[in-house]
Design a protein around this nucleic acid. Structure first.
Lengths: 227, 227
DNA sequence: TCCTTGCCTTGACTTATGTCAAAAAAGAAT
DNA sequence: ATTCTTTTTTGACATAAGTCAAGGCAAGGA
């Protein structure tokens, strides 16, 4: 297991901070461990601080009254979660759950606010993080409202192939059921769309491995949104 | 017309700042005027600063390749728009357009960043603004993905009745066509749902005036999501 | 008053996607 | 290997909401 100080030093949120402040952060950080499936926080909980993922994978999601989930984000090592309540004073707007056994660092709100108040570059880092997230939500809203499921899937695959360096082959790091929830649909529908896109020779699916056979076609599906 | 310094002083983003900094902000602010329908910025434009709305009403939206619009936000006086590129360095993620003749104050990026870097409480204000916005997007994603149009409309009406102090009667401050786009649907569908909800005695519609006849029924529509 | 323009509504039809149920496939555990 | 559990796929069906087209209605200008 990585040392906390290493995790803190390598988190983008804390990049560029002087060493004494990294040590200070290390001092206030609390270790939290969660098994697969554990709830990290629930919508409506009051947030007494935020987390950085040291190891593992966490989903942040909303739930409808009928129990359907919409995943807002899937976070991995180095990423902060649960910052919103730190600055609004309101409760968490969503749920967070460990997708696999995870190790998080918890930063208590007041100590962290003091740190930010005394450190403009930490404040600017945090502003950048929130701004990026705002931009991501913007894209997600666009996808949900202006594209149909095939377009959303195509976008996601293209995004993955950019994030991974495997040529024209991508590997899903979540189950297809979770992917359905991330794309705002249900497993049955996603399964059918995988089948249709395979039939159309756009992709070839082998379990969690997907080869992008026709990047141009996928791109046009992703931007046109329809079909 | 209000003086710029009054607008700046009363904007939540700048609340609690010492007078000399309000004057400094006033010094760097640039007046911008837009007629109804004018484009304030476009998706992909690089942002050289952000705006505060002094007077008027602005919509921020995405557009699909088929031309359908999804409104992300409608902003009024005192609210900041276009801050994301200030902190990410990336271009605007959406379009902004004046819904009515509007007067905005423009704050150039570099001068503003300098100001933030020297003022923790301005930074914390900005963090609060972005966090609130994140929370709103969270709700919007939930609405789009987990509720059907009647549920979204009910939510919106309840939200309006909370924001306005008119007992059980609300007044739309945007056209029904714009409302459709805000709710992620089209005017025809919205019109039908207004008709159905009237028939069910949930509301009574008279132009832009809507009376909430059955707040309990609306509430359950809004939370259940399904009709 | 008439006409124009933009906004809203209504009707007939199509379709993407959700629901329910069950089978098949893939992993995990014994 | 065998069994058990979870995930994924398939089929038959229901339905919310979009498309296209036309008509009504209200506000403002000539």
């Amino acid at each position: 297991m990585k040392k906390n100080i290493e995790i803190i030093s390598s988190a983008p949120l804390f990049s560029g901070l002087p060493e004494y402040q990294l040590n200070e952060l290390n001092r206030i950080a609390v270790n939290k461990n969660y098994p697969k499936g554990a709830v990290i926080f629930s919508e409506g909980d009051k947030g007494s601080g935020f987390f950085i993922i040291a190891a593992g994978q966490v989903k942040v999601f909303k739930v409808s009254s009928e129990g359907k989930e919409q995943i807002l984000h899937i976070f991995g090592p180095g990423e902060p979660i649960g910052e919103v309540p730190v600055f609004t004073g309101q409760p968490f707007p969503a749920y967070a759950e460990a997708l696999v056994k995870s190790h998080l660092l918890f930063f208590p709100k007041t100590a962290f606010i003091d740190l930010i108040a005394g450190n403009p570059s930490l404040a600017l880092n945090m502003l950048a993080v929130l701004s990026l997230r705002l931009r991501q939500f913007t894209v997600q809203i666009e996808n949900l409202s202006l594209k149909e499921v095939p377009g959303r899937l195509a976008s996601y695959l293209i995004y993955l192939s950019g994030a991974q360096e495997n040529g024209q082959s991508v590997k899903l790091n979540i189950s297809k059921g979770q992917l359905a929830s991330l794309l705002g649909t249900i497993p049955e529908t996603l399964s059918r769309i995988f089948a249709k896109m395979s039939e159309q020779q756009l992709i070839a699916v082998d379990g969690r491995h997907i080869r992008l056979l026709d990047p141009v076609g996928l791109e046009s599906l992703a931007t046109l949104g329809k079909n």
